[in-house]
Design a protein around this nucleic acid. Sequence first.
DNA 1: TCCTATCTTAACATTTTTGTCTAACAAAAA
DNA 2: TTTTTGTTAGACAAAAATGTTAAGATAGGA
Lengths: 196, 196
Amino acid sequence: MPLKNTGTEQHIKDTAKRLLFAEGKLHATTQEIADAAGVNRTALHYYFRSRDLLIAAIFQDAMQDLSQRLNECMISDESFKAKTEKIISVFLKHMIAFPYQETFLVTEMNTLGKNLITNIQSDPVKSYLKEAAVEMEKGTIEKMNPIHFLMNLFSLLSYPLIMAPLYKKLFRVSGKDFKELIEERERLIISLLFKQ
Amino acid sequence: MPLKNTGTEQHIKDTAKRLLFAEGKLHATTQEIADAAGVNRTALHYYFRSRDLLIAAIFQDAMQDLSQRLNECMISDESFKAKTEKIISVFLKHMIAFPYQETFLVTEMNTLGKNLITNIQSDPVKSYLKEAAVEMEKGTIEKMNPIHFLMNLFSLLSYPLIMAPLYKKLFRVSGKDFKELIEERERLIISLLFKQ
DNA sequence: TCCTATCTTAACATTTTTGTCTAACAAAAA
DNA sequence: TTTTTGTTAGACAAAAATGTTAAGATAGGA
């Protein structure tokens, strides 16, 4: 709780978030982060004491942010399909902004991540899964373990963005064309998951 | 090219592959790799000169291995659906054995990966994509940019395994149950991608 | 005006890791 | 038996990165 809030602490966090989760420089050193933020390296220690604490802070921020917005989608008062469309929209925006956040999570799961993951609320997810089961009974989506439905949804959303740098090379697609491909997926995923 | 082939070089590679790509210890030090292989750290330098060269070697091996098997599926003499089933089977086996290899690729794309990716043959992929387009005309799969079809396929295959540690916690599923879930996906993915 | 939180500069200690070198040794090959 | 090969052991140099500390500078608030 700083008395004079100069915004430097937040600026450092934002910069670190951009470097790691947007640009994919997962091994960025404290020096690189400080340089990118235009502050002295000691300022990082002044605010966060250690690199690990800074990283933990930005990861927690990002997860908090995303999971809250997803929870809002999941417990909203709309139809299952409308909810799913919102989830897709929210998640896709997040993935476009921070494509490396999930990769970071996977690589650091064994070390930093352990505690952070347990913070994820699972109640909204459970209620969303229940609704999926109802839809399966109604026949609007194919019958399967609802967990499969969720895995399918997030697979189709996340993976192409995680692999974007590879796919651009492999398919020889420009950044602009790839962006268009990704945008197309919003309705493609819906039409793949829903029968009607 | 050792005169007496004692298998130590291969053993080191296999161990490194297991540590990094199977167990996900992507930051394993030369000491840790040597210990896991039961050899002296000097032996690593004796065979590979540097950590980077060792890593590059195992990554190239693994990519070579996988892409060759996938290419065989893609250019085989079977129906499109049969090919796709084989691709799923081959890729799933690989992902189960080395779930962290793709994550490693993503994190190291900017440094080591640059050269390695260009080695990927894209001709079999191109011919597979053409066949997909034919199937779309026939109506056996939904009409879309064939690149979407391929992205969908690999998304549905890869992502759940990349995220396995997270999903197990999130859904509170045991390793055994999760393995069953993954095995179910083999036919689930087919039924999702093919209309008939 | 004085104080204090914010932030810089600079120097330095520490740790971690990589990579190198040399000596030694066992076992197979010549 | 001698040589070569594969491998260990130990010591060490060098680099990279983190973290600490002390000494200011500066500006806004009391």
